[in-house]
Nucleic acid binder design. Structure first.
Lengths: 338, 338
DNA sequence: TATTTTTCCGAGACCGTTCCCGGGATCGGG
DNA sequence: CCCGATCCCGGGAACGGTCTCGGAAAAATA
């Protein structure tokens, strides 16, 4: 049943010429008679010839492909970042191979091996919440495979990275809540070992200290980015002896769910509890109250990472570079107390 | 700078044996002395040897990879479907290569060529809104490459497909709105040439006819799945001489935005206009009013498509199969008028 | 000890391309 | 008419693996 896939050799045989000549014609090189070339191209399209990229890549010792490892594309931040990567790759005529770690260290490692085995020309990574060691990435550098991290990065590794101004924006967001008169500000952030979680936490802490507000550990929640724990830690916060009067949430979906739970408990947003989200999803504008958030330019971050990686691939001697992309605070009803 | 990547030949040379033997050890075959095998494995892991999948795939004439073309993973339905595909592929020990058409016919065609050139073992597709012809897919069958469509499928092509009961669920949803006393039900659906859009539309129309309600073309909006037109057609619907008293929306995000606009215009949901969404996103439970929706089991659809494709890959003589996965109506506040 | 079987390994073809190299044919200039 | 340059094209190695086949050495059997 299985039809034989047509190769360059088939075309050569049918035309009574050598495969070198066919290769020349298909590659669009000039040292070939126009007439011969036309015959080859005609037959190729008639037979629906598709070049075997496997063979080409093997021979060329490069794949024209950049590998991407992200936690999960169900997370819109990463979906948008991947979009930015793909757009940039398209412009450079490169392909993209996307892997999801599903926030698992093991899966991430498997993805990495898979990409290396596929001989991608470079790799872009945003690490999983579970990942707390970087040696598996260090070995890439030894192999000469360019590597760029974005958003979720390691602090101490020497590699290019694209991050946002986590510290500053967390500080700005917290100060905004303080200016609204909030004094007991809860902070929901990611796992402690993730660099950007720590940076955000520090921004939050420094904002409190700067305004002489008491830091209470019970107001700090370390959450995974997954959604199934939101109800649990919301109840925890609401049941504290001194209920928070503001919540800086890890993302907009979590913020939305928290607001929903608090409303059911008779709390008014923002009068009783002000809420600030993260990511500035579209839905922020359509919910009630509209949700203040941090605009986190996912698409640009991805595009920037891809651009940087492509540079590394093309000029192998480049030094690691760190880019900071600015997030911005978008104030809406959920945090406007006065 | 660029360190040489270690190959099977390097290991053979360093150990003074032939590459056949190294291959045997690495492939875990039995006709090799345990001691030799151990030496090879030790050196391989010490040198961080990674097999070149390009070479393996070229030789084996298969890639153990399934290609996926979806409109865009920023759309959560497709992100979840891809998740289902990936899970199923993992279980079967296969890889997944994801392409996004970005709802463009041209890009979709490019993706297809790219996957064929990469010699994927099979392809899963959900077509773009622009795609209204299927010949590019027909040629896959000639080449003997298994193909499975899901959700957005062609009506007349002979290929395996996984769809939901679009007609029935649109009918059920519409009847639900009718039972709530709504008489002027607007329907927002996808482009006319898409099979599932038409199926849903027919379900809607037949529900109206069954209950002797007048069908008005002005209540039917053909929208793309992108979000930037929502405001436009919402205003159109609200400005109709006979304003609709119910809206069956194309997805939950559109529904949310429509509700927001209507509220700003002083309309009460659901008393003035009942709203029914599509996809049953998490946020449905957290918005106000909570959003009725159609639960569209994206993950299962993807998993089912992948399972089917893997079967086709393993048993080349299989007949095309059509699977229907049931969606279900989830009633919440936004459509509960009484 | 002679023969058979088993164990283990090497040689080399092959997958589908690219590309270097060399050579025959044609052409132009002197 | 001769000869170097130009134009086309074919042969064949190479990319990094797999796998078949055959054979030498070791082990088992007679």
């Amino acid at each position: 049943m299985q039809k034989k896939v047509v190769t360059i050799k088939d075309i050569a045989r049918m035309l009574g010429i050598s495969k070198s000549t066919v290769s020349r014609a298909l590659a669009g090189r000039s040292d070939i008679h126009p007439e011969t070339k036309q015959k080859i191209l005609d037959l190729a399209s008639q037979l629906q010839y598709e070049p075997n990229t496997l063979a080409i890549n093997l021979k060329q010792q490069k794949t024209n492909t950049i590998g991407v490892i992200v936690p999960e594309t169900i997370n819109r931040f990463f979906a948008r970042a991947v979009g930015g990567i793909q757009k940039q790759a398209d412009m450079a005529g490169m392909n993209v191979m996307i892997c999801q770690s599903n926030e698992s260290y093991i899966a991430e490692k498997k993805n990495l091996h898979s990409l290396v085995s596929s001989r991608v020309d470079g790799i872009i990574v945003s690490i999983s919440t579970e990942t707390d060691r970087s040696d598996q990435f260090a070995s890439l550098t030894e192999k000469g495979i360019p590597l760029v991290f974005f958003d979720r990065v390691f602090e101490n590794i020497v590699a290019s990275q694209v991050v946002t101004n986590n510290y500053e924006i967390a500080m700005e967001g917290t100060e905004h809540l303080i200016e609204q008169g909030c004094k007991r500000i809860a902070f929901v952030t990611g796992p402690e070992h993730l660099f950007n979680s720590r940076a955000r936490l520090n921004g939050y802490l420094d904002a409190l200290r700067k305004h002489n507000l008491q830091v209470k550990d019970s107001y700090i929640v370390h959450s995974h980015y997954r959604s199934d724990k939101v109800e649990e830690y919301t109840r925890y916060l609401l049941n504290l002896p001194q209920r928070p009067d503001a919540i800086f949430a890890i993302n907009d979906y979590a913020a939305l769910e928290m607001i929903h739970i608090m409303k059911k408990n008779g709390l008014r947003i923002p009068q009783d509890v002000a809420v600030l989200g993260f990511n500035n999803e579209n839905l922020c504008r359509f919910v009630e109250p509209s949700l203040s958030s941090i605009d986190h330019p996912a698409h640009d971050i991805g595009a920037s990472a891809a651009e940087m990686l492509i540079n590394h691939i093309r000029h192998h001697d480049m030094k690691p570079e760190k880019r900071v992309i600015k997030s911005s605070l978008i104030i809406r009803e959920s945090s406007r107390v006065q």
